[in-house]
Structure formats: structure tokens, C-alpha cells
């Protein structure tokens, strides 16, 4: 029998997937808002990670925020 936690997680999964469908339908202009932009530091981390990553790479590596972790 599914536990309450499993059921809640299943509902959350359904909700999350339906939000993806919903967000996909929205125009890009809807998200044109400074509060909905990730920080430059995060973007820089991603770009730097990519530059240092060869074509084949193992997962489970995590780039931590500069000066935060």
C-alpha cells in the first residue's frame, strides 16, 4: 500500500509535469522580469563548468557557488 508520502510525491510529480505543459504555452515576454532571472554568478558557474568539461564526463559532480559553499 502506498504511504501518504508516496501519494503526496506522486501528486507533486503530476502537478510539476502539468506546470511544464502550462509554462510551455506562455510567451517568453511573460517571464521578462528581473525577479525571474537567476543570478549572474550561477550562469557564470554553468558556463565555466561547461568550458572545463570534456565530451564525456561523469555525473554526480556539483559546481558550488563561488564564495558561498
Amino acid at each position: 500500500m502506498d504511504s501518504s508520502f508516496t501519494q503526496d510525491l506522486s501528486k507533486l510529480e503530476e502537478y510539476s509535469l502539468s506546470m511544464i505543459d502550462f509554462i510551455e504555452k506562455l510567451p517568453d515576454s511573460f517571464f521578462d522580469c528581473e525577479e525571474l532571472t537567476p543570478s549572474k554568478g550561477v550562469i557564470d558557474n554553468i558556463i565555466n563548468y561547461s568550458k572545463k568539461t570534456p565530451v564525456s564526463y561523469t555525473t554526480n559532480n556539483k559546481v558550488y557557488r563561488y564564495s558561498r559553499n
Binding site: 510539476s16 506546470m19 511544464i20 509554462i23 506562455l26 517568453d28 517571464f31 521578462d32 522580469c33 525571474l36 532571472t37 537567476p38 543570478s39 550561477v42 550562469i43 558557474n45 554553468i46 563548468y49 561547461s50 568539461t53 564526463y57 555525473t59 559532480n61 556539483k62 559546481v63 557557488r65
Partner: peptide, 30 residues
């Protein structure tokens, strides 16, 4: 970035956590 970040923020409701998930997401994408 804004569309993807908005989705993550809607799901986790905290900017700090949303930024971590956003970063981890793109690491998997890469």
C-alpha cells in the same frame, strides 16, 4: 533562463534553492 528558472521557482518557492536546482539542471544538460 527566465522561463526555466520560473518553473523551478514555482516548484521550490525559494530563490536560493531555485538557483541551486537551476545550476544542477544545466550541469546535467551539459
Amino acid at each position: 533562463r527566465n522561463k526555466i528558472y520560473s518553473y523551478i521557482l514555482m516548484m521550490v518557492k525559494q530563490h536560493e534553492l531555485a538557483e541551486d536546482v537551476f545550476q544542477d539542471t544545466f550541469i546535467k544538460v551539459i
